[in-house]
Amino acid sequence: MPTPSLFCFGLGYTGTRLAQAAIAHGWRVAGTCRDAGKAQALRTQGIQALVFDGHQSSPEVREALAGATHLLVSIPPEADGDPAWRLHGKTLEARGGSLAWIGYLSTTGVYGDCGGDWIDETRTPNPATLENQRRLEAESVWLDLGARTASPTHIFRLPGIYGPAGRSVIDALESGRARRILKPGQVFNRIHVDDLVTVLLASMERPSAGRIYNVADDQPAPADTVLCHAAVLIGVEPPPAVRFEEAELSPFARHFYAECKRLSNERIKQELGVQLRYPTYREGLHAIAAERVP
């Protein structure tokens, strides 16, 4: 059996963690990033990292795509569409049905505000921002490609991703960046990056063309509750509480707090057989705190 080969458009936080997991399973991995220095560092990990700025196509990328069996797309769309599709879509179309799996990382922001309701993947999207509207349009582009080329394509709708290496509320507390915003009734789901990787690998083992998955933990919780729990774990005082109405927030942050939803993750459990290693923020933050260097 040929060695599987993963190509990641976007070797960011999630893409790199997935690449590392795939290499550990004996896969070949290639992918893109914007910075030449980062590309060099990724190559030392066994990843064929290529510089791709999203503005012009790359012959090196085309060559690497030609040998891929699996494709992950995590680059956000821009005003003129999804850069991976815009610049390399024809290359992928020429592959026909030779890709065993395509995954697109989207956002639960495409649902818009749901008034705190529990929602699953059957909820009609209602994006409230231009960025989330672009995400929804990009979903359609990749699903259409999969349908036309008989390449099983999947959409993964993600809430906030957290994990080690500077991507948690623990790091925000330690750096002094954390803010404790109080908004009664407001809750958020989240997902640990390693659970997200588990979901992606499980989907690769069980392709289901056109399927959409909410990738979230079991317990939506208020942001200030999560922050205070993290503060206890590392033995610091949380920052002073500020009412949402009185907080000086960026337009992005203010909109973030304007939406409330509770995400059902039953589909990843029932269809992909996933058991979350970090089913709530408690397990995830405890693991991150335990890994901290004294």
Rank of each mutant, 00 (worst) to 15 (best):
C8V: 09
R43I: 11
P76D: 06
I181E: 00
T44K: 15
R28K: 04
G81K: 06
R95S: 02
D144Y: 10
G31V: 02
I155E: 02
V199R: 00
G46T: 09
S250Q: 13
G67K: 12
C260K: 00
G96T: 09
G116A: 10
G46C: 12
A64P: 10
I268L: 04
W142D: 05
L71E: 06
R95Q: 10
Y111W: 14
S175P: 00
A68D: 06
Q219R: 13
L92G: 05
G166R: 02
S98P: 00
E283V: 11
C114G: 13
D80G: 08
F252S: 10
P238Q: 10
R206P: 11
H255L: 10
Q275Y: 12
K183E: 02
N214Y: 06
H88V: 13
G46H: 07
R262H: 11
S203E: 04
Q20S: 13
K269R: 15
P83K: 03
P238S: 10
A21V: 06
E237W: 07
Q40A: 14
I155P: 01
R267N: 08
S106A: 14
G115K: 04
A66E: 14
P83W: 00
T225P: 02
E137Y: 06
R62F: 04
L136T: 00
R254K: 12
H25Q: 12
Y281P: 03
P222F: 02
S151W: 07
Q270F: 14
L143R: 08
E266Y: 14
V193I: 06
I119C: 13
A49P: 01
P76C: 11
P125L: 02
L18R: 01
S175M: 05
V61K: 07
D171M: 01
E245S: 14
R254I: 07
G273R: 07
L11V: 03
N126M: 12
V187N: 00
V215T: 04
I23P: 00
K90A: 15
V226M: 03
G54V: 06
P77K: 09
D171N: 08
P238R: 09
G96S: 05
T280S: 13
Q45N: 15
A289V: 11
Q270T: 15
P220T: 07
H70C: 04
G284W: 04
G12W: 05
G81N: 05
V274R: 08
Q48S: 13
W118I: 11
A36Y: 01
Y281H: 14
R254A: 12
P2T: 00
P220D: 10
R243C: 11
R177C: 09
